[in-house]
Design a protein around this nucleic acid. Sequence first.
DNA 1: CGCGAGAACTTGTCTAGACGACTAGCTCTC
DNA 2: GAGAGCTAGTCGTCTAGACAAGTTCTCGCG
Lengths: 262, 262
Amino acid sequence: MAALSSGILGALDPTSDRAVFRQIADQIREAIDKGRFKEGAKLPSESELVEHFGVSRMTVRNALSILQSEGLVSSEHGKGVFVRPRPPVRRLASDRFARRHRDQGKSAFTVEAEAAGSKPEVDSLEVREEKPVPDISARLGSARKVLARRRRYLLDGRPVEFAVSYLPLDLARGTQIAEPNPGPGGIYARLEELGHRLDHFDEEVRARMPSPAEVKTLRLSSGVPVISLIRTAYDTEGRAVEVCDTVMAADAYVLAYQLPAN
Amino acid sequence: MAALSSGILGALDPTSDRAVFRQIADQIREAIDKGRFKEGAKLPSESELVEHFGVSRMTVRNALSILQSEGLVSSEHGKGVFVRPRPPVRRLASDRFARRHRDQGKSAFTVEAEAAGSKPEVDSLEVREEKPVPDISARLGSARKVLARRRRYLLDGRPVEFAVSYLPLDLARGTQIAEPNPGPGGIYARLEELGHRLDHFDEEVRARMPSPAEVKTLRLSSGVPVISLIRTAYDTEGRAVEVCDTVMAADAYVLAYQLPAN
DNA sequence: CGCGAGAACTTGTCTAGACGACTAGCTCTC
DNA sequence: GAGAGCTAGTCGTCTAGACAAGTTCTCGCG
């Protein structure tokens, strides 16, 4: 109530055409944008807002749900509604898989995370053979069976990324690629040892709202989209040797690409 | 009600811990995923769902609002709630601004759209001098004043992208870059004529939920995130000569990058 | 002093109803 | 036949409650 009595929020405009719950959302949004509610701060409780604006609770909740779907606030049962803090962002350089950066011990994820002072973890590791969905199959030159490597990445305990690598089975079966730990330099190093010198990667970037399963796996709060990145690795013969399907929490990532102007 | 009597939607599980409105959303989501409600199809009306599930209208609306925030459905006042059709996707190749692709008459947007059989339009064209926000200023080497070129792109009447180019004022003032129509090959061709041969571009890709202003400008339906792309162009001297800040409707775009493996 | 029970406060879920605004199809009139 | 107006159906907004479930703090008991 300190927030209200100190005048952060004003009154409604009864002459406006704009719906009451939108006016309330507008006021709170503006207060957040202008820093009158700071990151991580608790908003006035629903009942305080009900009293302040003189509306019913559903109207207030409607307003708050708008802000939640915009990713501005998140609610915590029994505690309150809070201005959503922006998590530290991980920057993915486009050349992170280039041969010259291939670290001989750790994965790109581990190296980058430690450089940024965060604690990296990988869990839900699963390696199995399976029949690919048509899209993956097509990208791998109509492969009928593939080796799938699934894993989830966490930073300081927070899940930020879920990735599945698909490799043609005839290429990966029986090699260290089919082991949970693919060894130093990762599967790209193993592929090159097998004679598949990598030539280039294709990356496709999309953004969308997460499925319920993704919300659960990445522990996403509402109003956070995901970035879907599908990377295909080609060897010098022009054969697609790996497709990696990655889903990232969009509030944790910036993708950085450098492109020649020729 | 044909939809209901034909058994597309089942009954609630009263023993489940899952909230009733979530169960309803789950059922409708599953029906959409499995194609029992097709793209563009109308869902049963709220009152039909109220009757079918034996719950109050707010509970049904709550369920529908979940699906809406997931981008699965969109409601139309007075008409009904519809399975959101997936718009045709525009694929942006990472080399679309490369010199060798610079078309001597039309913009990259126009060329690509016409190749895809769509009708491209550009509106809200505005060119003015202004003081940049700190982030833009920093990217342009602490430029104190810039030339800003704003425009909105539409495909077949639908707004899909809003972009602002910023150029250092000392570089652009008085040139054709400061005109509404920058001439054949666009501002990159003009920059090279002015002696700033382009060397490379940096692109930063983010995804987030749109602000209310962006919802309006891009006519976004709820549950559609935006892709934010910030491109910086550098000349061969290493000077940043342009920053382009682009906001795209995420359901209309795929970004495609090709990266060398060296 | 430690700790458990409880009170007070928070958000989550749900009901039952009211009225408004928009759409589409129908009918009636000109 | 064309247009105006009516009407039924749809979603949009809002009220006034109720109970559930999670959190935090206090207070009294041992």
